[in-house]
Structure formats: C-alpha cells, structure tokens
Design a binder for these strands. Structure first.
Lengths: 148, 148
DNA sequence: AGAATGTTGAGCAACTTACTCGACAATAGC
DNA sequence: GCTATTGTCGAGTAAGTTGCTCAACATTCT
C-alpha cells in the first residue's frame, strides 16, 4: 500500500474542484468536508498543488480555490508526481537513465522499468475530468439508492 | 521509490542462491559479501524467505542456505509479496474485493486496480531463474570488460 | 569440547507520515 | 480604518517505519 494520504487526498481535492468547475472559488472547508480530509492537512496539500500549477487561490470574502486549467487538461500522472514525487519503484529507472555502476539491483532493473512504464502510461491516460465523471456517477448512484 | 531494501536485498539473495544452485549450501557471509548486503540484516531477510518456503538452511560446518525449488519455479511476484507485503497501491484493490463503503478514493480505484493488475502480471511472468540468467550475463560482460 | 555454521529477539538511530496549532497575510464590505 | 472572511505557512508533535546492529543462543561436524 504505497499510495500515501498525500496522493489520495490531493487527487480528491482536484476532483472536488472539477466537480465545482465554473462555480467560482471553492472554499477549503467545503473541500475538506466533502472529501473527508483534515482541513489543516489539506492546506499543505493545496500549497503543493498551487506550486505545481494546478490550482490558484483567492483570499478574503468570496475566496477559495479554483483549477487553473480545464479538468480535461490535468493529467493524473503529473498530479501524482507533484504530490508523491516519482512513482518509480527504484530510482535507476527514472528518465531512462543509463546507470553506469553495476550493482546487485541491475538484474531486476528491466522488470521494474517495465512496471514503471506501465504505470506512467496508465496514469498519463487519465485526466481529472475522467475521475470527476466517475465521482459524479458515484454520487448519482448513491442518491438513487437513497431515494428508492 | 517504493521498493524497499527488504525487497531488493531479498531478491538479490535468491538470485545469488540460484547462481550457486547445485553447489551445496551457500553461506550467509558469501551472499552478504557478493550482494553487498549487511550480514545481520540479511539474517532477517533469510528468515522471511525461509518462512515463505523459498529456502532451507543447514547449520554447522559445511552449512548454509539452499533454494527449496528450482529457480524456474520461483516466481518474482510471490517473492516480492513475501518480502514487501502486498504491492497494491491501495488496499481496496486487493483480491478484487468488492468494497461496500463509498469513500473519496472510489473514483480513483479503477486506475489503481489496472496498475496493480499490470504489476502482478509483470512480476508473475518472471522467475528467479530469469533474473539469475541476467545476473550471469552481467557478470560475463563485466569479466570481458576487464580482460580487454 | 570446540569451531563453524545459522537464528532470533530486542533495541537503536534516523527518518517519514499524518497531522495540528497559531500567527500571519490578503481582501471585501461597511 | 476596522472587522470579518478567507487563505498561507512554518514549526512542532506523536506515532510509526526503516535499516540496521548486537548478543545470546542453537545446531552440527570434527
């Protein structure tokens, strides 16, 4: 279980913003509440996301957070790398770097490299819009369930 | 970088045993030396591998460690799961379990599930024999390099 | 009996995670 | 200009994890 709270919560926050896209700034308390994220912890994640260029913020009355790009343009790979750092299983598979020093890991390297490329491909093929769509469908299913 | 020393070192130890398959018990000091693993730490990893059923040990003069199965029969997925525990990115993708409680992670779950299945497929397709072969080729390449 | 091997529990230092707290900054409205 | 309403951020904390080490012990062969 290596996806940390950081990664999970950060993506949830962006999904929440995507669900409210076009509605003006979304307050941090609202995000925290809906996504079940401790507010003070969320603050630090929002700082990462802001520095990563995914969100921008407005302080003061009527303030909150907004996406800087359309949800379709925000790829999950970049988000996860911003929040978690590299998802490479081992460091020597990053940037297809040619490692010049032999070590005991070399025999395993091709396996981890393929796994890393698979992950990048999968994460790169998903946008925050896709996830927001799924979250929306999930909400509708939940609502339908309660109204029967 | 989520493959820990445990995973890496444990696989190296098995590769070392595969390289010496058929030569009688391999001593812990030899494995530690060749694979650049601290001996006392290796002891704990060998305990995991023994409990996982991959190796058996002989104490006393002439003692050491041996594989319990042919290298071809030892699949990397099982080894890694023994050493690292599950490699699932998130717990709710394990055993294809149907999660009944909605949470903020659900929207992301299909992505992580595919990634997990990719990993299992890749790791399951590789045996310790494959890795030993690669390690052997690496050794030959190294020897050839020095003899020019 | 002694040397040569492996085994294991406990402990340690350093590091990481998942937060919290409180002070501060920016902004709108009156 | 003051107040309320928002966000920001550095420092700190508790708990947990990682990567080991140490020492005592157990087994086995000569």
């Amino acid at each position: 279980m290596w996806l940390s709270r950081k990664g999970d919560y950060g993506v949830r926050a962006l999904i929440d913003l995507a669900l409210h896209d076009g509605e003006g700034p979304v307050q941090r308390a609202g995000i925290a509440d809906r996504q079940e994220i401790p507010e003070s912890y969320l603050d630090h994640l929002m700082a990462l996301l802001r520095r990563g260029g995914f969100v921008r913020s407005v302080r003061g009355p009527g303030g909150g957070h907004l996406l800087t790009r359309r949800p379709e343009e925000i790829c999950l790979l970049h988000v996860i790398e911003t929040l978690e750092g590299s998802v490479a299983p081992i460091s020597c598979v990053e940037d297809g770097e040619d490692c010049t020093h032999d070590c005991g890991l070399c025999a395993q390297r091709p396996v981890w490299e393929e796994i890393y490329q698979d992950m990048r491909r999968r994460l790169g093929a998903v946008s925050i819009a896709d996830l927001a769509e799924r979250a929306r469908a999930q909400q509708h299913a939940r609502a339908a369930h309660y109204s029967i």
